[in-house]
Simulated assay, not measured.
Amino acid sequence: MPVEQARPKARPRSPGSLIASQIEALAGNRVTVAMKHERPWASITFAGTRHSFAVDWQGTAEPDGIDNLAKALPDHAFAIPGYFVADILVTEQSDLRLLVEALSITDPVEKPRNF
């Protein structure tokens, strides 16, 4: 009788991983996004996480590619059920790399859910 192997449980995707994948999609998948670190964040009224990313352009530099991405990030509407991105900032920029800080906040109205 064959032994049934346990299937790994799907891991919930964190807000940080969803932000990273949406940055990649915004750039037309011409970048790779690596999480540098995450830190809990809180104020009197809100709780969330501060995320730090390195965004690396793949291949040769396109004249305006990384610059266009840097300009698009602050106005991008990230879709993260149960959270919202309250702040996103490019802290460093070169021809092939961005360093990005983002703040995701737990939405007080929509409860976070497993992805």
Rank of each mutant, 00 (worst) to 15 (best):
R7C: 13
P8H: 11
R13M: 13
R13L: 13
S17F: 09
L18Q: 10
L18N: 05
S21Y: 08
S21A: 13
Q22W: 03
E24H: 01
E24Q: 09
L26I: 07
L26G: 02
N29K: 09
R30H: 06
R30S: 09
H37R: 14
H37V: 15
W41R: 05
W41K: 02
A42Q: 13
A42M: 14
S43Y: 05
T45H: 06
A47F: 13
A47W: 13
G48H: 01
G48R: 03
R50Y: 08
H51D: 03
S52G: 08
F53A: 04
F53V: 04
D56N: 14
D56Q: 09
W57Q: 07
G59Y: 06
T60E: 14
A61L: 06
E62N: 09
E62F: 12
E62H: 09
E62V: 12
D64F: 10
D64L: 14
D64K: 10
I66W: 01
D67G: 12
N68I: 10
L69W: 02
L69F: 06
A70I: 03
K71M: 13
K71H: 12
A72T: 14
A72M: 12
L73T: 00
P74N: 08
D75A: 07
H76L: 04
H76K: 08
A79W: 11
I80L: 04
V85C: 02
D87N: 13
I88S: 00
I88W: 01
V90Q: 01
V90W: 00
E92K: 13
Q93E: 15
S94N: 13
S94H: 09
D95V: 12
L96N: 10
L96M: 12
R97D: 04
E101I: 07
E101Q: 11
L103I: 08
